[in-house]
Design a protein around this nucleic acid. Structure first.
Lengths: 135, 135
DNA sequence: GTTGACCTTCAAGCTAACTTTAAGGTTATA
DNA sequence: TATAACCTTAAAGTTAGCTTGAAGGTCAAC
């Protein structure tokens, strides 16, 4: 299939597919006589694997490192990196939860002033900042 | 105080403080005769408020919108935006939790093969992708 | 009087993952 | 035959939030 069809099937823009190729992530198996890129089902699956890897938190630079010289999946590396990614994700979740809580506290405080028809004085806000530990 | 001292106190690089100024976020109250930026305690607090706002998910462009023409905090806008930010944060938390789970499932699967001395065939991996819904 | 630690401005560079643009070749259809 | 919808390459632009570099002024200490 040509790049346009691959793009439609995967919902990934052709420009992005070409960009991945320029990064060495995904080359079409063949080229037609006129120079058009021709992709196979396997190419499509590899493309989807790239998107999946991204969804797990791998950067484009990291993805080739998950395979060995023969292009096979490198289990040891993958498992090791996956565990690292999970730790990172879990840390981010915690941070986001704290952020959500900070937003909640601040909203509540602002609303309490609002309900009294008042405004939170900037001095009070600064006091609050000193109490909260935000990164 | 001069920019170096402000930088030390807030642990924000002087280059960043100048950058914020160029974005219209924080101007020093005065300049000394030789052109050095001179900051007050209030400037310091405003700088910390910028960092705090960032920690809540506000972009640098968004921060000025939280004040009205007189430079006062605009409660209505702030509350509205805070609620939006919280929703965004909560969505992100959910997505990250799903990601963490996806990583967990994949790690488990890889390990089950590994324990048998085998490798996960790429075909199995592609089957898995079809089942999972990742963004 | 010179060394070094400050400060100034303006402009350019950085990162990641793309997207857009320009200039042109190919193919199917009317 | 023309026109639209494809495809090609190479290079530049985009975004946010900075950082770095060049070229130079200021100031206190030795």
């Amino acid at each position: 299939m040509k790049i346009g069809e691959l793009a439609k099937l995967t919902k990934i823009p052709a420009s992005t597919i070409r960009f991945y190729e320029s990064k060495g992530l995904l080359a079409p198996t063949t080229r037609s006589a006129n120079g058009y890129r021709l992709y196979t089902q396997q190419n499509l699956e590899k493309l989807q694997l790239i998107k999946f890897s991204q969804s797990l938190g791998f950067s484009l630079n990291e993805i080739p490192l998950l395979r060995n010289e023969n292009g096979e999946l490198n289990h040891t590396v993958i498992i090791e990196r996956l565990e690292k990614k999970q730790k990172e994700a879990d840390i981010l979740i915690e941070q986001m939860q704290k952020k959500s809580q900070r937003i909640g506290s601040l909203t509540a405080l602002l609303n309490s002033y609002w309900d009294k028809g008042e405004c939170l004085p900037e001095s009070k806000l600064n006091e609050l900042l000193k109490m909260m530990d935000y990164e």
